[in-house]
């Protein structure tokens, strides 16, 4: 009896459609986030993450609609991120059926937003998403914005320490160097973050083979998020779970289909 390692597929949603490398032949509409979320849930996902990458704020109603429809048929936790700027944004998403909200740029612009959300809804709803890369800062890692293109001028470890004190439920750590390379997670980055925070840590970016997931857990991750390896069918969620289970990690092997 022990807490299972979570495997979390992430769907990038733009104007209500799943984008970025989705390649499912058995779906009538692979661009439909609701259908994709149902499929992943049936295949054993422990949670689902939607990342709204719409450039325009006008897409907020579309996102709410996607969340609403998903919450009607997917009975596992749903995290929604992208474009969350205020306590009101969080309220709307939670009421639509999201369980957790991830924030990134808005918290960098105004760190008090973290405590405002935590006080109103509890820190467990808040996932701090950090896009970090290697740089010549104090810890060797810096925070970036705009999908890793722009430096936020902030040391990643300093930022995570600060945010942890303001009240977060967990950290989604995205390595912008490893992202899309399929050459493995940035293990040193995971270790550095693990050593300064006591909240659960979700590692993201760089998964290419099954052994990569195990290495991230050894480095200190509690949950693993991936997008393209699942979307492209490199392996299925159950493959990751079976692999880690055989290595002795507690996994939830029941599916929801």
């Amino acid at each position: 009896m022990t807490l299972c390692v979570r495997i979390i597929p992430c769907l990038d949603v733009d104007a209500g459609r799943v984008v970025k490398g989705v390649n499912f032949k058995n779906l009538a509409d692979a661009g439909d986030p609701v259908e994709m979320a149902s499929l992943y849930s049936a295949e054993g996902a422990d949670e689902i993450t939607f990342l709204d990458i719409s450039a325009s704020a006008n897409n907020a109603p579309t996102t709410l609609d996607v969340v609403r429809k998903t919450a009607e048929q997917v009975f596992i936790p749903l995290t929604v991120g992208g474009g969350v700027r205020s306590v009101e944004d969080v309220d709307k998403l939670l009421r639509a059926g999201a369980d957790k909200i991830s924030i990134n740029t808005a918290a960098l612009n105004r760190p008090e937003l973290i405590s405002e959300i935590a006080q109103r809804f509890g820190q467990q709803v808040l996932v701090l998403s950090v896009d970090a890369r290697r740089a010549a800062t104090e810890s060797g890692f810096e925070v970036t914005t705009h999908g890793g293109k722009v430096s936020a001028g902030l040391d990643a470890i300093t930022w995570i320490k600060q945010a942890s004190q303001l009240g977060i439920g967990e950290i989604l750590l995205n390595s912008m160097d490893a992202d899309g390379t399929k050459s493995g997670f940035d293990l040193q980055m995971i270790k550095a973050v693990r050593s300064v925070t006591s909240v659960p840590l979700i590692a993201s970016g760089g998964a290419g083979k099954l052994e990569d997931f195990e290495a991230a857990l050894v480095a200190g991750a509690n949950a693993l998020l991936a997008a393209s390896v699942f979307h492209f069918g490199t392996f299925k969620i159950i493959d990751v779970k079976n692999f880690l289970s055989n290595r002795g990690y507690p996994m939830r092997l029941e599916s929801n289909s």
Binding site: L3, C4, V5, R6, Q123, E170, P200, N222, A223
Partner: peptide, 13 residues
């Protein structure tokens, strides 16, 4: 437990 919240799937006896 040093890692809190207890977040995720766990077995119930």
């Amino acid at each position: 437990n040093p890692i809190l919240p207890h977040m995720g799937w766990n077995t119930v006896q």
